[in-house]
Amino acid sequence: MPKIENPLLLSLYSKVVDQVLSQTANIEEANRRLREIGHDIGSQIYLTTDIVEKTKDTLMTREDVAKLVEIVFRVLYDKRPTSIDMETARGSVRVTDASCIWCQEVHLEGMHGFGYCEVFSGILESVLAFKSVEARVFQEMCRATGADACEWNIRLL
């Protein structure tokens, strides 16, 4: 079993997910609720970290968005994302993390479509909004449900 990073965060987040799942009617709703929680956390992150100093006030291009994602990863997790894909779809930026911190050692069965790490989608959406970028972020793949890596799709509007 690999060493768990940030066990306190994991335990707290696990509790949050348990609560969301007990209060929502279906997977879509659960995903949405987790994203909403991420939005709230995103505001706190923006206020308390140096993301604002390290990035431009307004982002104009997908390259700017990719740079912002790298900075968010560095500030929050002290690492880089596994990959940032801007080629596959012209209107999207895809972020992959093969060592996602949120779903470490989480194994889910029969919950296809559930984004265990959707909270990070909400965080990204929120931070992007502060940078005047309208986007929808959602988790496309999650290690907790069997994928090799967690993947988020930043769909630029």
């Binding site: 079993m1 050692e105 989480v106 194994h107 889910l108 069965e109 029969g110």
Partner: peptide
């Protein structure tokens, strides 16, 4: 036994 082959499976 978490280090020796035991894991927690989440499900509904």
């Amino acid at each position: 036994y978490r280090r020796f082959g035991l894991k927690m499976i989440g499900k509904t």
